[in-house]
Amino acid sequence: MGIDIDVFTLFPEWFDWFRTQRHVRNVMESGSSLECINPRDFTTLSGRQVDDTPFGGGAGMVLRVDVMEQALSGHYGVQDATVVREQRRLIALIPGGRILDDAYVNELAAEPSITLLCGRYEGFDERIVQHLASDTLSVGRYVLSGGELAAMVVCDAVLRKLPGALGHADSAEEESFSDALGGNPEYPHYTRPAQWRGHGVPDVLLSGNHALVRQWRRARSQERGGA
């Protein structure tokens, strides 16, 4: 099972590094794809313009709805760009969007295809959000200079959920906020040396008793979650 992810960004080269990451390469070799599309390649405005000043005044520039419409229509080969959101999850990355959490990631990981729209400058013309996108997403209640870093966060969180991404089937089973941990943060981990500056590893982890280890880990996870 794979997923096709399209990212509409003014800086597609930023994702070249991301594609080199091992878990990303693993899922792409298994049939998933990550393609970056530059709206500048579709604009009909002079100088490859994609933005304009906001009506009502104010600082900064806003990404134009007609340019995004042209980019979506051109890339997906449709006459009416508003139908794209009926064919795939089309997500506008905005600070005020739906907060990304593990449940949202699971939703997206179950989709055959998603599209991420990266804002820039002062963001999107609101008609992009209202009439072209099907969803909104925020990686937190703060402002980034553009949607590219947020898109990488989404891609990373989604792709590592896919079979084969992490190389071991159990790697993503008991992660922070997973169902296996009841939505709580992950328990603490320890490795060698067993003693460091007088701080030792909890005895239960050295006991070899797997049932007690599981019990200890669940208890620590619940503590971290405030349960």
Rank of each mutant, 00 (worst) to 15 (best):
G2Q: 15
D4R: 09
D6E: 15
L10F: 13
L10R: 11
W17H: 15
R22V: 14
V27H: 02
V27P: 02
S32G: 08
E35I: 15
R40C: 10
Q49K: 05
Q49Y: 11
T53N: 04
P54F: 01
F55A: 14
G58M: 04
G60C: 00
D66W: 02
V67T: 06
M68W: 14
H75S: 01
G77F: 01
V78L: 05
Q79F: 11
A81P: 01
A81S: 14
T82P: 00
V84D: 00
Q87H: 13
R88M: 12
I94C: 03
R98I: 11
I99Y: 07
P112D: 09
L116K: 10
L117P: 03
C118Q: 01
G119C: 01
G119D: 07
D125G: 04
V129C: 04
T136Q: 07
L137K: 03
L137W: 01
G140E: 05
Y142Q: 02
L144S: 08
L144H: 04
S145E: 10
M152N: 05
A157C: 06
V158C: 09
P163D: 08
P163Y: 08
A169Y: 15
A169L: 15
D170I: 08
S171Q: 06
A172R: 13
S178W: 02
S178R: 13
G183E: 09
Y187V: 07
H189E: 13
A194W: 15
H210S: 04
V213C: 09
A219K: 06
S221F: 03
S221E: 06
Q222V: 14
R224I: 07
G225M: 01
G225L: 02
